[in-house]
């Protein structure tokens, strides 16, 4: 099976869903004729000129257009170029889309997808590098999908477009060039995956942190630690059962989140596992970024992020406790 890049997997998912369903429309800033600033969506406008649209730089209007068109039977996918711009969409996403199914007494749901490039490590500075998950994690009615591999990027995006609910689909910028095999299967939303088996400790991550955790797990073997690595893949709804199964075996859990410590999704995993399985736990903690803005300079930014060595050191330190 041929390997393709993460960005190509996303493009293919959009292409296939646009072909499959006439109600799918895709729009955003520079996504059509230019093919996207991260070169994710080239060639789509040429194939679907009426349904792939360049828009003004108007995030409020984009989110509102997605909501309103979804009420009227479309399946809109719109791109917010950087996740840092998502606050501009929040009224429509949070107050309109996420609540519509409930407050309309289920007259209609809002099958929209908002795609957004997120994450640090690209020297983009404090306002083009954030991971905006904690801003949205506490919003009932909004799914949050976070792929780590090309296969899941494609499989989850196809699932997101077919999902009858609003979905926030996050793409880590450092993964766009990652290559992997893609078989074209749908990946179910709300299901995590064990991506490395081990008996000594469970390491939970999402997006780029999954790869950092896998790299750390490789190094931990030298220290006689076999880590089990879980890719949560979706953060709302969250596959906590998969984590609990693993913890029942390892009794130790560390959650790695590229995002600020306070109120993050790692805190939510730790809380849920503690509530459900306190008696099975020998240790539980988080590795996150600091509660501080993301710095620009390479030396500062590299030191800010939970790299594999940071994960290894943290796990070894906890073992020495």
């Amino acid at each position: 099976m041929a390997e393709i890049e993460f960005r190509r997997a996303i493009r293919d998912a959009l292409d296939e869903e646009l072909a499959r369903d006439e109600s799918v429309i895709f729009f955003g800033e520079d996504v059509a004729k230019a093919g996207g600033v991260f070169a994710v969506t080239p060639g789509l406008w040429e194939k679907y000129p009426d349904r792939v649209l360049d828009t003004p730089i108007s995030e409020l209007a984009l989110a509102g257009a997605a909501f309103g068109s979804a009420v009227c039977g479309k399946r809109p996918v719109f791109e917010i170029m950087f996740g840092d711009f998502l606050p501009l969409t929040m009224d429509s996403l949070v107050n309109q889309s996420a609540k519509y199914w409930y407050i309309s007494n289920e007259q209609a749901s809002i099958p929209l997808v908002v795609r957004s490039a997120i994450g640090a490590g690209g020297r983009f500075g404090a306002i083009h590098s954030q991971t905006p998950i904690s801003w949205f994690l506490g919003v009932p009615g909004l799914k949050i999908v976070c792929p780590a591999t090309p296969a899941d990027a494609k499989g989850l995006l196809k699932s997101a477009i077919r999902d009858p609910n609003p979905v926030l689909f996050l793409e880590h910028k450092r993964l766009y060039g990652l290559k992997g095999e893609v078989n074209g299967d749908l990946t179910p939303i709300g299901k995590g995956a064990v991506v490395r088996e081990g008996d000594d400790i469970t390491v939970v991550g999402a997006m780029k942190s999954v790869h950092d955790a896998l790299a750390a797990a490789g190094k931990l073997v030298e220290h006689s630690v076999e880590a089990e690595v879980i890719d949560l893949r979706t953060l709302r709804p969250m596959d906590i059962d998969l984590v609990l199964e693993s913890v029942a075996k390892t009794s130790r859990l560390v959650v790695v989140e590229e995002g600020p410590r306070t109120g993050g999704w790692a805190a939510e995993v730790v809380a849920r596992v503690s509530e459900a399985a306190l008696d099975q736990l020998d240790d539980i903690w988080r590795i996150t970024t600091a509660d501080a803005p993301i710095p620009y300079s390479p030396t500062l930014e590299d030191a800010f992020l939970p790299a594999p060595d940071v994960i290894v050191e943290s796990i070894l330190a906890h073992r020495r406790k």
Partner: peptide, 15 residues
């Protein structure tokens, strides 16, 4: 939310 109806109708117009 003041102005929310403007957004909703604009989206409907797109559809």
């Amino acid at each position: 939310i003041v102005g929310g109806s403007i957004a909703a109708a604009t989206g409907a117009g797109l559809a």
